[in-house]
């Protein structure tokens, strides 16, 4: 990978020169996806806030030393959030609170439809967090974060075949839990 392949390299150079505005650019570019990743892995928006704060502190420290060409900075950031989320889950080792189901009801919904949408979101949320940790990581990276199988396998330090096996087991588990509950 050369420097022009990674759009963050120029922003990192500006941060290293002390341009605070460039920090805002990096935050706006990556925070929504990183926050969604941490929220889905941890099941808590408040925990995701803390993970993102830790991740960006590391990003500021890394900016002056970043060497273009090894990996994309966004991939590195995802790896940091993944590791911080794992640490937090290991420390917690308890059921995830269901406080992160976003308001999915449409304004045009009737009260019954709105209630149905929220219930559906809760069902999926619960099923996602009942998956084994590695299966959940694989599914979140590939389905929700949009990583390719090769990128997700690299992030999880697995072979592509092993990733595919995790994904298949995750989807089978979800199919039973989610579609069974919704029908």
């Amino acid at each position: 990978m050369n420097e022009s392949d990674d759009p963050d390299v120029a922003v990192l150079a500006r941060i290293a020169r002390g341009e605070t505005a460039a920090c805002g650019v990096l935050i706006d570019r990556h925070l929504p996806r990183l926050h969604a990743l941490a929220t889905r892995l941890l099941g808590s928006s408040a925990d995701a806030d803390e993970v993102c704060q830790d991740a960006f502190v590391r990003a500021w420290q890394q900016a002056p030393n970043w060497q273009a060409g090894k990996a994309r900075f966004s991939t590195w950031l995802h790896q940091v959030v993944l590791n911080l989320s794992r640490d937090r889950l290991r420390a917690r080792r308890e059921s995830a609170p269901l406080d992160t189901v976003a308001e999915t009801a449409d304004h045009a919904d009737t009260p019954e439809q709105a209630h149905g949408r929220v219930e559906q979101a809760r069902t999926i949320h619960r099923a996602l967090h009942e998956l084994p940790e590695r299966q959940r990581e694989a599914l979140v990276l590939c389905h929700f974060q949009g990583f390719s199988n090769i990128e997700a396998a690299a992030l999880l330090q697995l072979s592509v075949d092993a990733l595919e096996s995790l994904l298949a087991r995750a989807r089978r588990g979800l199919r039973d839990a989610v579609l069974g509950a919704l029908t």
Binding site: C23, H35, V57, A102, L179
Partner: peptide
């Protein structure tokens, strides 16, 4: 069914905290 699983976007307070912790 999975796509219906939306999560809350990061708050503006979180963005402000990240900016405050950014290098001066």
């Amino acid at each position: 069914a999975l796509d219906a699983h939306a999560v809350s976007p990061p708050s503006s307070a979180l963005r402000a905290a990240l900016i405050a912790a950014a290098p001066q």
